[in-house]
Design a protein around this nucleic acid. Sequence first.
DNA 1: GCTCCTTACTTACACGTGACACTAACAAGC
DNA 2: GCTTGTTAGTGTCACGTGTAAGTAAGGAGC
Lengths: 338, 338
Amino acid sequence: MTETARSTSTDVARRAGVSRATVSYVLNGRSDQSIPEPTRRRVLDAANELGYVPHAASRALRAGRSRLVLLIDADVPWSTNITDAEDALTAVVAATGRSLVVWRRHGPGDLAATLANLEPCVAITLQPLDVADVSLLAGLHIPLVTADLGTPGADSATRVQLEHLAGHGHRRLGYLTTSEPSLQQFAGPRTAGFLAAAAGHGLAAPVVVALQGASAPDVRDVASVLSDWTSRPDPVTAVACFNDLHAAACLAAAASLGLTVPDDLAVIGLDDDDFAPFTSPALTTVRLQPQGLAHHLWALATHLLDEGPEPDPFAPPGRLVERASVHRPPTAPTERKP
Amino acid sequence: MTETARSTSTDVARRAGVSRATVSYVLNGRSDQSIPEPTRRRVLDAANELGYVPHAASRALRAGRSRLVLLIDADVPWSTNITDAEDALTAVVAATGRSLVVWRRHGPGDLAATLANLEPCVAITLQPLDVADVSLLAGLHIPLVTADLGTPGADSATRVQLEHLAGHGHRRLGYLTTSEPSLQQFAGPRTAGFLAAAAGHGLAAPVVVALQGASAPDVRDVASVLSDWTSRPDPVTAVACFNDLHAAACLAAAASLGLTVPDDLAVIGLDDDDFAPFTSPALTTVRLQPQGLAHHLWALATHLLDEGPEPDPFAPPGRLVERASVHRPPTAPTERKP
DNA sequence: GCTCCTTACTTACACGTGACACTAACAAGC
DNA sequence: GCTTGTTAGTGTCACGTGTAAGTAAGGAGC
């Protein structure tokens, strides 16, 4: 196999015996141009035989917009839900002929450099950017789609947490969350949603504690919180957590205090991470369904791009995954997945 | 603020009172062109005032190569090590003025579509692609860098696992891995590395079992394996696992069988995932150091691109993270991180 | 005064695509 | 036979950049 050059639309035109314009009309399937079937076929065959693929950069230059969609990920710890959301978004975007690529920001100054290399694209972010970044995008005329998860009621998953605990008779609740700045975008609405749901069920306001720690809290810190909560006059009997990692820390802390889960203390997580079946006891948690979020985000994007209709506000629904950390299951705490 | 158009090098030239070529020479810092300081300064000031950023698509068209590096990720479950490797690679690539973007493949046919949208770029993959994909890249003249982790001795992390177990007196070992096809690229070398290290230490060949399961194995399957291993005439006293998720399943299975870890059975993982401190007992594991891998990959890339020197083969080193699943720590099994 | 060399630029092309405007050939209408 | 309309195309420009080739001005050499 010799060193062959990339074939261009000029090569296709020459091989099909037509002009380059005709090639463009055929391959872009324009209906306002009359192209007889034999010619159309000649062009298509030539393109196939040459393995012609339009040059992305050239096309982006001409169109003023590339077919890339940049997902700007914050530098936060991963969870199943984030990768699920990414996968769903990848599929949705691919269905429109575009491609989603993910960029994890590394420092504050990197965004400008990255955009300079991607430029005529579309950007999506799962958490709000600060003012400087937004004006950066505006200066380059890059449309930005933001998942506004901060709207009231946006986090219905915490309602699922609360309803499960309340349904099992727990009246005095604790909420364990994080004080990590980069996670506040998620932590804020979740805490608010949990408190609102508790109020809606006529429960006393849950006690909330936010612990530091870049990805996970320290077990000793959690133990001291639990020790405090369970030794009150009206002891906390159930703890809902910001995510599964916090819940796992909570289980470890309970064990170190000699508390039995779920009898002395119920614990519920959020995310359904891969390790959730393997904690002791196996973690009851709530799984988000990010496929809907992906469709919502892309609807927002098309609204910005092609003037599609503005989509309704959207709250990703949560699905309860019942294991053994809120109440004892009828059988052994091991599980068999489908 | 009015709707202003993107500024181009023509705008900069007009504002500085020079031709577009001069602008290009100044901004690209060409040393073979003589540009007096006052002119240089006028151009730089004009570019700053207009917020000029070169158009990425146009530049890629002209240069025949974009400044994007595409990391092709397989559709495998995440671990701390993969995201660490991505982050390190992002930093290394950014230091060269290029940008790394990540694409998670979703189906077999998607690669062609994605490349058509990115085209004049560079591709990096952490696991080998099949023949069709490689020829696809070749047809589009996209350089491909592959991390060849399958070379002998490439997985030194398993040697760390073995040495820790052997150092604590374990002579009869089990190795628990996965039969999942998409993970074989990692599983194969790891198993081979563990067996080789065991032979090197004069131990009997470890018993190996590969379980199915897309991300994690089923606890009952693991329990039946452990039950078998521990009831032999020469019972297995320590188990090394493919990753931390398998190790967590192993701990849960041991608990369900009434085995005490580490007294009845030692368990060691690989990855140091975020949840590892929270298992019961806290998981002893091995953390890979992917920063070195990132540098190695980029050295391979520059070798392909600019004819830099070919780098030496590289094996990412593993670092032992000692917790409580191989031997009892002197104090309580909770831990405080720095 | 003429050539030769350097300095400080400018003009013009190429990269590959998409699309508007134009045209040659031919049939229909009267 | 002339206009009008349709069919099946083609010629050419624009997108924004990087750079090779060209050129006008000014001084040195004789």
